[in-house]
Design a protein around this nucleic acid. Structure first.
Lengths: 336, 336
DNA sequence: CTTGACTCCCAAAACGTTTTGGAGAATTCT
DNA sequence: AGAATTCTCCAAAACGTTTTGGGAGTCAAG
């Protein structure tokens, strides 16, 4: 049974009554309601989604933009996150569409397409930059959205983020507590909020301890980027004895650099993200990760609340960072 | 500018003309066409997607169902594949929605919701079973779909798959050529097509060589499943000297089992999928993978052709399997 | 001058649903 | 008994687009 009209006709009822019966309104008698429900069940009737969306002025969709450039595509278990998010959204009648950014097109362009074409009720943004034009655009349009990662936007917006500053501060302090003094940082591109704030955490710990925060090298957030940045640091006159790396991918690149260099196995390393692969590197990679479980559900919940109209300032979650200790962070080193 | 009506009014034209001008029909003069286009550009007008969908009777959406149970979620670079697929679909005006399967609900139920609610124009199915009720359902509804993996369905359907039979046949023969005679197989759940056909490939090579194909253990398609299956094989009176594993995850579990057992480092292993993690195991994991690049684009292309009405029999791609040689497949072994 | 072809435009119908604003019948209250 | 209230139900409007089936003009050919 394709139609509401056909279903109504076959029951000898009006379209209105059938529609309201299925929606459980009280102004249709229990008897007919049941009769309608049975008929709908039997014929497998489902309301046409496009028609409902048009009438209700809701797209019943949420889009997530996928950056297409390589490296660090949000959190490690990104697909699991998406899946969990989609599952929770689905129970509220929303579906999640993925919006990859084709080469040559900007992420704002994609947002514009989705928002101005009324294709979505809300958006989910990953990999925020410190100054993120997507955020600015969505704010200007007034459409609900949640980001994975903070920004430096003046107006508050909904986000979920890990406290990278505190995490990298703690990681650096832990190295200091075990006698390290020349602690280097392998930084990601500073335009990204997460990369910047992680560097700030490392730097604050160095400053507080009265150590010179000069052992810093920036690279692409990839294995290769970490490798090159590590080589840079290792070639300097005063070598680091420990490396705090912005991401696990970069840390794995750093481990490769250490393997190639004399005395590299005395240098400790810690990363961030808890990539599964870290358990298999040699040495196995000590790392950090954001606390909290079922991240996808959290994103979904925030999105739903944003759609319901809750102010953005109430929709911000900053999660603590915890250590995942393996071998790479405590290699025997020679104190300065 | 929200409306076509408003845009038309502001231009002193009819809705019809504006609509046709924007769609580039020839029955509107070049002058007005240009005038309309400029106005639309300036006001940032985008047609309301829901309205167009309702009118054109097309959802402009394709759904992909994500199995929620753990392990082997399709190919290794699954997210990349989805992203590539979505990107290609987008250039044809289609968006990709992800449809996770909540606990307690069957995958067919999800398909039914999407198909009967006219929410999608086509579907993408991953991880096919030999007898796949999703395939049967979609065929009964006559909706276009493409699967990642074949099935034993009598009626042909569109798919992209790797030639697992040939791949596992070749892998087993290669072991035979280097003197192995007791070659074991760690099999995935035989209800899955890929798992079944890979086992058949191994078995055919053993049969052809006149060897007894009794060293086979089945397990869950996970690291733990591979670990347990390997232990099973290693405890048998006549141990294998080489293991052909249905997936890399299982192979990695097998490597763990070998590490725990006496003489395990004389046993060769090969997996399938080319997981990135395989480069970091010790020994590094030799594996296989499906040939062909930009798989996502291939899926998108097949989906579009299916939507366009091409018969399913013309939409089947069987890709060859190639070896990715690392260390684990040639460990020094003692011949029988 | 008429006919036919061509160019440019438009009114109205349709897509399938939800919601508004009652209408008629049945019931309860005064 | 009449008035007020409650129960059921429904016709029609609306959501914003695309498409159908023409309707005026203009121009060239007959």
């Amino acid at each position: 049974m394709a139609n509401l009209k056909q279903l109504a006709q076959s029951l000898g009822l009006s379209i209105t009554t059938v529609s309201r019966a299925l929606d459980g309104y009280s102004d249709v008698s229990a008897a007919t309601r049941e009769r309608v429900r049975e008929a709908a069940e039997k014929t497998g009737y489902r309301p046409n989604a496009s028609a409902r969306r048009l009438r209700k002025q809701r797209a019943e969709l949420v889009a997530v933009t996928l950056p297409s450039d390589p490296g660090h595509i949000g959190p490690p278990h990104f697909l699991d996150m998406l899946s969990g998010c989609a599952e929770h959204l689905a129970s509220a009648g929303l579906n999640l569409v993925i919006a990859p950014v084709p080469r040559g097109e900007s992420e704002v362009e994609i947002c514009r397409r989705f928002v101005d074409g009324r294709r979505v009720d809300a958006m989910l943004l990953v990999r925020t930059k410190r100054r993120d034009e997507r955020v600015e655009f969505l704010q200007s349009r007034g459409i609900p959205f949640v980001t994975n990662g903070r920004t430096e936007s003046l107006e508050p917006h909904a986000y979920i983020d890990g406290d990278g500053f505190a995490g990298f501060l703690a990681a650096t302090r832990r190295f200091q507590a075990t006698g390290h003094r020349r602690i280097g940082h392998i930084a990601g591109p500073q335009e990204y909020y997460f990369a910047h704030v992680r560097r700030m955490g490392w730097q604050a710990a160095m400053d507080d301890a009265g150590l010179d925060p000069d052992l810093c090298a920036e690279g692409a957030p990839t294995e290769q980027g970490g490798y090159l940045a590590a080589l840079d640091l290792l070639r300097r006159p005063s070598r680091p004895s420990a490396l705090v790396c912005a991401t696990d991918e970069m840390a794995i690149g750093a481990l490769r650099a250490l393997r190639e260099i004399d005395g590299g196995d005395h240098i400790s390393v810690v990363g961030h993200d808890d990539l599964p692969i870290g358990a298999y590197t040699s040495p196995s990679l000590s790392t950090m990760r954001m606390t909290g479980e079922n991240l996808g559900a959290s994103f979904a919940s925030l999105l739903l609340r944003a759609i319901a109209g809750e102010p953005a300032a109430q929709l911000q979650e900053l999660h603590a960072i915890e250590f995942v200790d393996r071998d790479s962070h405590r290699r025997p080193h020679v104190a300065a």
